[in-house]
Simulated assay, not measured.
Amino acid sequence: MSLGAFHDSEPLTLGVELELQLANTHDYDLAPYAADMLRLMGRHQLPGSVVPEMTSGMIEISTDVCRSSAEVLSQLGQIRDALVQCADKLNITVAGGGTHPFQQWHERRIYDKPRFQELTQLYGYLTKQFTIFGQHVHVGCPDADAALMMLHRLSRYIPHCIALSASSPFVQGHDTQFDSARLNSVFAFPLSGRAPCVLTWADFEAYFDKMTATGVVRSMKDFYWDIRPKPEFGTVEIRVFDTPLTIERAAALAGFVQSLAAWFLAEQPFTPQEDDYLVYTYNRFQACRFGLEAEYVDPGSGEHLPLREHILRTIDRVAPYGEAHGASGALQLLRGDTLASHNDARWLRECMAQEDLLAEVTRQAGLRFRG
């Protein structure tokens, strides 16, 4: 199968996808209500789309193409309000968070869609364990070569994205001691991790042709990379974010990505190289495990410093580009939380410490999502 042409897109435009939890209002476990939610949501005239996900206690919403984080927030707000209305009719709740705190994977049902059934045949129980919830952010690139440069420059900031969005401390009733335990489920897939460090589209096409020739890969969808190019949209897609507890944070994370991307396009601040990836897995693990308290090894300088400090430096560096694209409020929100060492994982833990009941944590998360 051919990779296909890299389509034109307006540089620095945004698209956001959110995978969301559907929980009953009896014990706040996941509930198989995706089909009912899709039926009710189909009656609303909304931007973007609402589609099923791997198992029937989850759905995915997405925006149309947006030019700013404010537009992302506006579209997510419209979709969120309709979701809440539909959920109330079904007596269920919709929540963010990268994992459901206590659902048992073996109780999940695969949503009846041919691709999901194929994946179940291939990956076995891993597909049910894929009942995890992420945010994907697409950013428009001027051309195919620029997209690969963007992808590999962004890779230095994957730990920042993980720590800022981390919202999955609990798995199957236990505190994992990770801020983002969700990504541990992604790493189990054989084609996860990072893209090969090729910087021209011609070289990437050659790599893709080799992979399809092995019979292991049929399309870009088969790569579960942290960041991947999406030639059909003309974008690069970042996939490491946990789904935040609020749409405000989801929009702010999109603003952070747009600000970074604008800086890269304007200044070309460094040329990516294979050696950038020497510390990639270490940095990613640190961010998953410790969130904003992680250690970060700068791939360029080799400097070891607190990730929180590097996030603050980065926000200050991209602030002029954020301002030019209307993302100042988004960066301010993230800066304030970073200074306070506060992400959604910490909020969930604080809620658990106060309530001592994970069902109540899920109920409170559902209330937060309502806004």
Rank of each mutant, 00 (worst) to 15 (best):
A261N: 09
L265H: 10
R239K: 09
G302K: 02
S301K: 02
L278Y: 14
S259T: 11
L307E: 02
T246I: 07
T271A: 13
D316Q: 15
E248L: 14
A252F: 10
G291M: 01
W263V: 06
E295I: 14
H310I: 11
D275L: 13
G300R: 04
R308W: 08
F241D: 01
T281W: 13
T281P: 14
L278M: 13
V240P: 01
Y296Q: 07
I311Y: 07
H310R: 13
E293P: 14
T281I: 14
T271Y: 12
F290C: 12
T246Q: 05
L253S: 08
Q268R: 15
L265N: 06
A319T: 15
Q273S: 15
E237I: 08
A266K: 12
G291W: 03
V257H: 08
R239D: 02
D275E: 13
F270Y: 13
Y280F: 15
I315W: 06
A250L: 06
E309V: 12
S301G: 09
A252M: 01
A250H: 09
T235N: 01
P299R: 01
Q273C: 14
I311M: 00
I247V: 14
A266P: 09
T243E: 00
G255D: 05
D242W: 05
A319D: 14
W263Y: 15
A251W: 00
T281L: 15
E303Y: 11
Q286G: 01
R249H: 15
F241T: 07
A252T: 04
R249D: 09
P320Y: 08
T271W: 11
G302H: 02
F290W: 12
S259H: 09
A287H: 05
V297Q: 07
L312F: 11
R284T: 12
L245M: 03
L307H: 06
D316Y: 12
V297E: 04
T314A: 09
G302E: 00
E295P: 12
F264H: 08
E274F: 00
F270L: 04
R249F: 12
G234Y: 06
G291Q: 02
V240S: 04
A261W: 01
P306K: 03
I247D: 08
L253R: 00
L245C: 04
T235M: 03
I247L: 09
F241R: 06
A319Y: 15
I311S: 06
Y296L: 02
F233W: 15
L292C: 03
V257I: 15
E267K: 14
T271L: 13
F256V: 04
A266S: 14
L292W: 02
L312N: 03
G300A: 06
V297S: 07
E303G: 10
R308G: 10
